[in-house]
Amino acid sequence: MRFSRPEQFFIAAGAGLGALASLAVNTGWIARGGTFPPFVYVLLALAVVEVVAGFATKQPPGTLFSMPARILAFALGVGVLLLLTGSLA
């Protein structure tokens, strides 16, 4: 499957958000045993990116990216989070 240019940027944003979440965990901004596990922050940030991208391109949010691109972006974000922190929680 080929991803469009916006989907490629969204997938890269997922990896970047995973790195940001791991930075927040490693510096103590997000507690490892807190109410929300760190991967939830990756998921919420991807939702914000999708809504902002939808408004920026004047398309309804939710129609810009396909479901495989969303799943891959989340999986990469969680993967980067796992690599850099060593655990999910």
Rank of each mutant, 00 (worst) to 15 (best):
L81N: 07
F10C: 01
A53R: 01
A56V: 15
V40D: 01
A13L: 01
V48L: 11
V78A: 15
A73S: 05
V40Y: 04
A47E: 13
G18I: 02
A45H: 08
A24N: 08
L44H: 04
V52A: 15
F39N: 09
G16I: 10
R70G: 13
S66D: 01
P38D: 08
S66K: 14
R32W: 13
G54V: 08
S66E: 05
A19T: 02
R70N: 14
F3A: 05
A31R: 12
A12R: 11
G86V: 11
P6K: 00
S66I: 04
S87Y: 15
I71R: 12
A45Q: 06
F3P: 00
A75D: 09
I30H: 03
M1C: 05
G62A: 10
L20T: 10
M67F: 12
A13M: 06
T85M: 07
F36G: 00
L23V: 10
G86P: 05
V52I: 15
G79P: 05
P37G: 09
M1N: 07
L76E: 04
S66H: 11
K58Q: 10
A89Y: 14
G14H: 02
Q8I: 11
V42K: 02
E7S: 02
V25H: 01
T27V: 11
L83R: 15
G34T: 06
Y41I: 04
F10Q: 00
A15L: 07
E50N: 10
L64T: 00
F10E: 04
G79S: 05
